[in-house]
Write a protein that binds this DNA or RNA. Structure first.
Lengths: 136, 136
DNA sequence: AACACATTGCTATTGTAAATAGCATTTTTG
DNA sequence: CAAAAATGCTATTTACAATAGCAATGTGTT
């Protein structure tokens, strides 16, 4: 029908991302996490002692918006902030945070597998490198 | 560095879409259009006499949100609404609307070409079918 | 024809994510 | 040491999408 729009990579990208995030959000909501929060937890698990601004730079979240995000994770007992020097704070997972991202991570892995399964086999291995080439 | 996140297709999709829309928005803003508005104009140009709800279904925009969008396009003189029956309105481009989407469409085409050019040649032709398989 | 039901376009409101601007403190650098 | 940059934060604003409800019209069934 509207093949015109589906022939524009930009539009397809927009629709695909909306669709996928719209599916992922309720899954993570089942773990009481938002998408951006899960991304922070994954990153913090991989790399210890990151500061708020380092996380923000990596995930493309502005400093001002990191504050309420980290506040929520901290008051949920998932992370803790520890002073590095008199200016910076190291962000690390708590025990609860490790457990949380462990179970949520499993759900994400399943989700990602299902996502890739939707892509025809001949295109599947090209998706990730193509996407990463666009933004990295 | 954070290869973990870049290995998740869902995350790469999110970041790529954000990056691309973040680049497209100011280009369209130069034509006094938002992304969703440009999509409507492209659709309406391709298919005459669509109703608001048909456009909404095609572009995945809710009826309630179609109203201010179409209002803006109409008051900008780009579209006009004409009664089909006593309930429905046909949306069509005005002369100005045709001119607008003609010039904006050229900018979009250039943008899309540049977007594809970023993708390594061996992955390029797989991007669109892979994305469309995800949401269509 | 009469009825229940769905659709259309709309209003009004809410919620949420992201952007902007500014500030005090601290660190870095030239 | 002085100027500039970085850090974490507050407060505000903007943009966007979601929700609920409504009157009018159209559709389908019996």
């Amino acid at each position: 029908m509207t093949d015109l729009l589906a022939q524009l990579p930009g539009y397809a990208l927009r629709r695909a991302a909306n669709a996928v995030m719209g599916e992922l959000a309720p899954i993570l909501a089942g773990h009481d996490l938002k998408i951006a929060e899960a991304a922070v937890l994954l990153l913090v698990r991989e790399q210890a002692n990151l500061t708020s601004s380092q996380i923000g730079k990596t995930l493309d979240i502005q400093r001002a918006n990191m504050v309420p995000l980290l506040n929520r994770l901290e008051s949920a007992g998932l992370i803790h902030r520890e002073p590095i020097d008199k200016k910076s704070l190291a962000i690390n997972l708590t025990k609860d945070g490790e457990a949380k991202i462990c179970e949520a991570g499993a759900a994400i892995d399943t989700f990602e597998k299902n996502l890739l399964a939707r892509v025809p086999a001949e295109h599947r291995d090209h998706l990730l490198p193509a996407l990463n080439a666009i933004w990295r």
